[in-house]
Amino acid sequence: MEKILEAIKIDPTITYEEQSKVTGVSTRGVEWNFTKLKAQGKIKRIVPDKGGHWEVID
């Protein structure tokens, strides 16, 4: 999950597919981690799914 958070800090518009390449985790695994991070309040989505971006909450 730390790799995901770091990648979001570098590129807030990163997609699940790009995250998969960066972390070496399957796309489905990345989706699962994003869901978990959202539930923990560590990230949030800004604006709509298409054209929006992620924000890491410290």
Rank of each mutant, 00 (worst) to 15 (best):
P12F: 13
D49F: 07
K44A: 08
I46V: 12
E18W: 02
T15C: 13
G52H: 05
H53Q: 06
W54C: 00
E55N: 02
R28H: 08
V22W: 05
F34H: 11
A7Q: 07
H53E: 10
K42S: 05
G52V: 05
T15F: 12
E55P: 02
L5Q: 06
T27F: 06
T35Y: 04
Q40S: 08
L37C: 09
T23W: 01
E55H: 04
D11P: 01
K50Y: 04
K36R: 07
T13E: 14
T23F: 02
R45T: 01
K3Y: 07
L37Y: 00
P12L: 11
I57L: 13
W54Q: 01
R28F: 11
W54L: 03
S20D: 06
F34A: 15
L5I: 12
K36S: 03
I43N: 00
H53F: 12
S20H: 05
G41L: 07
H53L: 07
D58V: 09
I4K: 08
H53G: 05
I10R: 14
I10D: 10
T27H: 09
G51Y: 09
L37T: 09
E6S: 09
D58R: 10
K9P: 09
V25R: 09
Q40R: 07
E17R: 14
I8L: 03
G51I: 12
R45Q: 09
I46H: 03
R45I: 02
K42H: 01
K9R: 15
E17G: 04
E31R: 11
W54N: 00
K38Y: 03
V56T: 06
Y16R: 14
K36P: 00
T23V: 05
Q19E: 03
V22D: 04
K38M: 14
K44M: 11
D49N: 02
P48W: 06
E31I: 03
K42C: 05
